[in-house]
Design a protein around this nucleic acid. Sequence first.
DNA 1: TAATAATGTGAGTAATCGCTTACAAAGATA
DNA 2: TATCTTTGTAAGCGATTACTCACATTATTA
Lengths: 171, 171
Amino acid sequence: MTEKKEQILEAALHLFAQEGYAASSTSKIAKSAGVSEGLIFRHFGNKNGLLVELLKQTQETINQVFSPIFRETDPKKILLKTLNLPLSIEKKHYDYWRLQYKLRWEPAYTNSETFVPILTKFEEAFTSLNYENPKMEAILFNQLLNSIAIDILLNKFEKNYISFLKNKYKL
Amino acid sequence: MTEKKEQILEAALHLFAQEGYAASSTSKIAKSAGVSEGLIFRHFGNKNGLLVELLKQTQETINQVFSPIFRETDPKKILLKTLNLPLSIEKKHYDYWRLQYKLRWEPAYTNSETFVPILTKFEEAFTSLNYENPKMEAILFNQLLNSIAIDILLNKFEKNYISFLKNKYKL
DNA sequence: TAATAATGTGAGTAATCGCTTACAAAGATA
DNA sequence: TATCTTTGTAAGCGATTACTCACATTATTA
């Protein structure tokens, strides 16, 4: 991957995640990347190709973050590691997550829920812990995870909240 | 309010909520409303004025929905009525809620959290119910409410989930 | 009824949109 | 070194953008 190609991706990610896809013109992206506008189309075909490439990178980032949880078998550790996730995410990856959450509201980019498999992982954990309704507990837990992530991304995060949750789940 | 003015607002609300603000051109709005493009600017000055008017309506809609909860004093009923809220929302109001949640991701329209006062209402309820940490319980409860609303708007809603929550809170 | 105001239209504006293309520079291969 | 491929630029394309304005129609008031 060329240096300029990476600069384009970087600039586009930031603009898409902050201003939105439609509001980020290719000329703005090129200017922000310090590159001629034509180069975007040389490398990615069209504006949408740029987004597709970024979504691929986003998926990889997400997979990497979740993989230690998938490898975990101890139910309590599954929940504990999950609750530790949001705060362990690197600032430089924030735009990937912003893009992911933002695109949930764009019907055009039917981004299939990439977090789905984690739900069954939670369900297994709650089953092991003898919770009465593991399926629903998994949904609840997953919603909490998403809410925390969103609050962090939107700078509305209450830092004592996670310890409160750990206490609630006896972790 | 003229009929054509209302048609403009209706068309704009739907387009903004579905496709997004930037992606919804004034010409598309006018065509969808069955109105000349110039009329948008006669009534609302510019495209942003159209959004401002819609946000005002959104705020009114939200206030109306929450007002019975603000009037409620019985703590259990506060929580119960809140959990019943998401499913009681009229389909024709969905676009207002979509717009609201969508705009949370647009830093340009610093839409101050309109749900904030409800948090203290929840906190009062949990205090009355002798929960150990009412403040955090309120945050948790509020996150659940938002998650449910989002799931409904994104068609990912599990209908048994709300009864599960009612049971959890002994309501 | 006549004058005034509010509502509505459609053609037009400059600026910007995503994208193409001709061409130059740089790198790789023979 | 000579040829070919990849990487990069800049000008320019038709289409669309938000918006204006001169004008027509309808409603309100005097």
